[in-house]
Amino acid sequence: MPPPSALDIRTSSVVRLIKEESSYHKELASAKKSLEKMLAGEEPDEYELRQQRKVVEETKAMIPEVRTRLQTALEALKFQLELQKSPESEPAQCKEKAQKAIDDAQKLLGEALE
């Protein structure tokens, strides 16, 4: 089996970062829900509240970081795809997968701007 091409590597990177951002959004929703439960309870423990608030803030802080890395990886993938314009350079399947990753990333980044 041949080693993965640069296009495959860049595509995998973008796909991974899309999943990572989605994971942080899910984690943030879960942490907020947990914090709300704690606040709704009778006499919540201040230490636990501080810790949960810290989790929420740290998770929020990671989303822009992942988004920045995704933008960088997206630009690298677009550049790599441009380099692979000749039909025989990469299999069509790899190019289609790369284009789908580009479309998904642009959709995700576009939603973030709204």
Rank of each mutant, 00 (worst) to 15 (best):
M1E: 07
A6L: 10
I9D: 12
R10C: 03
S12M: 04
S12W: 02
S13Y: 04
S13V: 06
L17M: 14
E20T: 09
S22V: 11
S22W: 05
S23L: 10
H25V: 07
A29G: 12
K33R: 08
S34Q: 10
K37S: 15
K37C: 07
L39S: 02
D45I: 07
D45W: 01
E46Y: 05
Y47F: 14
L49V: 15
Q51K: 13
Q52G: 02
Q52D: 08
R53K: 13
K54A: 13
E57R: 14
T59F: 05
M62Q: 14
I63S: 06
P64I: 14
Q71C: 11
Q71I: 00
T72P: 01
T72E: 14
T72F: 12
A73I: 09
A73P: 05
A76D: 10
L77Q: 10
L77E: 00
L77F: 03
F79E: 14
Q80H: 07
L81D: 07
Q84R: 04
S89I: 06
C94F: 01
E96Y: 02
A98D: 00
Q99I: 10
Q99W: 09
A105W: 00
Q106M: 13
L109C: 04
E111M: 12
A112W: 10
A112P: 00
L113H: 10
L113K: 10
E114S: 15
